Amino acid sequence: MSIKITEQNFDTEVLQSAMPVVVDFWADWCGPCKMMGPVLEELAAAHPTVKVGKLNTDENLKLAMARKIDAIPALLLFRNGQEVSRSVGYKPAAELEAWLRENGAI
């Protein structure tokens, strides 16, 4: 299951996390974002060693701007408090798993 990420809990849930974290930057009005939701839930269930969080860009605009999000859905992968990779646009589960493997998250 994914967790809700906000400007208030970003440091604790993402930057201070002991495990790799995928943060999905999304919005309610974004069709591809809605398609990505079930894929990320599947990913979270299949890989409990990776934390999956969802951050609504409309509700957390300052954080989205600080992370230079200019297209959504945008997935940012963090390890040890650092962004190590990002993926923009809808991706099926197999592509996301390959992306996580390439970046040492799984």
Score class of each variant (00 low, 15 high):
residue 17 S to W: 03
residue 30 C to P: 01
residue 39 V to Y: 02
residue 12 T to C: 00
residue 57 T to I: 15
residue 20 P to I: 08
residue 29 W to N: 04
residue 81 G to Q: 13
residue 58 D to S: 10
residue 40 L to I: 03
residue 49 T to C: 00
residue 56 N to M: 06
residue 85 S to K: 06
residue 13 E to T: 05
residue 64 A to G: 14
residue 70 D to N: 15
residue 81 G to E: 14
residue 78 F to K: 08
residue 49 T to A: 11
residue 55 L to A: 01
residue 85 S to R: 04
residue 83 E to T: 11
residue 88 V to Y: 01
residue 30 C to H: 07
residue 25 F to W: 03
residue 36 M to Y: 00
residue 78 F to W: 08
residue 62 K to R: 14
residue 56 N to T: 07
residue 83 E to Y: 07
residue 90 Y to Q: 07
residue 24 D to Q: 00
residue 37 G to R: 07
residue 59 E to D: 13
residue 37 G to L: 09
residue 75 L to H: 05
residue 27 A to W: 01
residue 47 H to V: 14
residue 55 L to F: 03
residue 32 P to Q: 11
residue 47 H to Y: 13
residue 47 H to N: 14
residue 52 V to L: 01
residue 80 N to A: 15
residue 81 G to K: 10
residue 14 V to G: 08
residue 71 A to H: 10
residue 34 K to A: 05
residue 39 V to W: 02
residue 52 V to S: 05
residue 81 G to C: 13
residue 64 A to T: 09
residue 88 V to A: 07
residue 64 A to M: 07
residue 46 A to E: 12
residue 12 T to V: 12
residue 28 D to L: 07
residue 69 I to S: 04
residue 35 M to P: 01
residue 13 E to M: 06
residue 23 V to L: 04
residue 75 L to K: 07
residue 64 A to S: 13
residue 80 N to G: 08
residue 85 S to Q: 14
residue 59 E to H: 01
residue 38 P to H: 04
residue 79 R to Y: 14
residue 41 E to L: 02
residue 86 R to T: 12
residue 65 M to G: 11
residue 61 L to S: 14
